[in-house]
Nucleic acid binder design. Structure first.
Lengths: 214, 214
DNA sequence: TGCCATAGTGAACCTTAATTCATGAACACA
DNA sequence: TGTGTTCATGAATTAAGGTTCACTATGGCA
């Protein structure tokens, strides 16, 4: 049993190493480096070994995407759950998401907008949906307590999610200059605008609070 | 000369037939039918003939995308140029865009959201940018005359464009039920929400006016 | 009618990676 | 140390379409 556990650990580690190598490759130069042979060599294993851990290329990258996305969704979820007005939470969630994206620009760009194979793209849709789900919860809360206009929460959530994601595409694109001051300004603008969509009353400008973590 | 003209016509017609076949194939079942051999047979020409008219598969589909997109961008541009308050024009532009998309659901889905080859996806970005440009013009007008909050017009335009496009993805998806009443309702909600982002003053509900044409 | 330029043909060819699999190495266990 | 099981290897195979090209068909023209 103890021995079996050691072996198991090895397996888990190797799998993690492959996932990591794949994530790094994407973070470094996008989907064009998303090739099994390359990732295998970066992970220090043979090409064929990748297939001991993943069913297919699509499976591998779906897992990479899930790994990274789940963290982002969790960050947003935590802010959604936090205390405070729905308006403030919404602004904070978007601002935080945007700031985090700007930090890991290249990877964020790949996850959000970079052209990629259809199979990966399909996995991306799930991530967007999960994010929209979190926003929808917040929208419901805001509607319930009268802060937000009464509107279909799912439609509203996709509008909000679409707004800030699309606005991020430009600043995240590899050809854009990575200026972290400008990044905060843009993030602030995006958060303010996206949230305004829902406010019932003309709201005093909310200052976004960064809840960047991890 | 007259003869050369006749021949030229043939060429133009054949090219149009190929473009048409490609568009139809996509409108019918999305990018999975975007295969040269299939499109050629639908157009009634041999596979090789496609290459007399287009440099490559990517070129062909980029032209298909441009063909369809330019019409949509033109429709939006016309509304942007129209008389009336910037707020009303914005609502109308979005509503009209949404209604038109709902009509040609399958094609719209393919153009906006369906996973596809990276090369096609890249062409899609241009379309989005062109649409955002039109919105940006309207945003500037609204800012100039005090209707809209003062904000970077390009950021605002991408927020707006992102909002209504993302909100359309769900309703356009092939698995969604195509109910044209519901479609109008959703389009209205999307237009209202997307536009509210910019309004400086709490605005009385604007009723979107369909300016669907052609 | 014979000729030429141009458009059309579609089977064969390529390219590019993903995927497989026969073989070898490592290791727990008796 | 012998043995069986599992994991690792990476060259060879496959697959799927895009692309090419040697050949044919067409139609205007003298």
């Amino acid at each position: 049993m103890a021995i079996a556990a050691v072996r198991l650990n090895q397996l888990v580690e190797t799998k993690a190493r492959i996932l990591d190598a794949a994530r790094e490759a994407v973070a470094l130069s996008g989907w064009k480096d998303a090739q099994i042979a390359l990732i295998a060599s970066r992970a220090g294993v043979a090409t064929g070994s990748v297939y001991r851990y993943f069913d297919s290329k699509a499976d591998l990258y779906a897992q990479v995407l899930a790994l990274v996305s789940e963290r982002e969704v969790a960050v947003v979820a935590a802010i959604v759950e936090a205390e405070g007005s729905a308006s403030q939470c919404l602004v904070d969630a978007i601002y935080t998401f945007a700031v985090r994206a700007m930090r890991g620009r290249r990877l964020a760009y790949a996850l959000i907008a970079e052209p990629c194979d259809p199979e990966i793209d399909a996995a991306r849709l799930k991530y967007r949906a999960a994010l929209a789900d979190q926003i929808a919860r917040l929208v419901r809360r805001g509607i319930a307590n009268g802060e937000f206009v009464e509107i279909d929460a799912n439609v509203a959530a996709s509008c909000v999610a679409g707004a800030f994601m699309e606005a991020l595409v430009g600043p995240l694109a590899p050809e854009a200059a990575p200026d972290s001051d400008a990044a905060r300004t843009i993030a602030q603008a995006i958060a303010g605008l996206s949230a305004r969509m829902l406010f019932r009353h003309a709201t005093p400008e909310l200052t976004p609070v960064s809840r960047v973590s991890a």
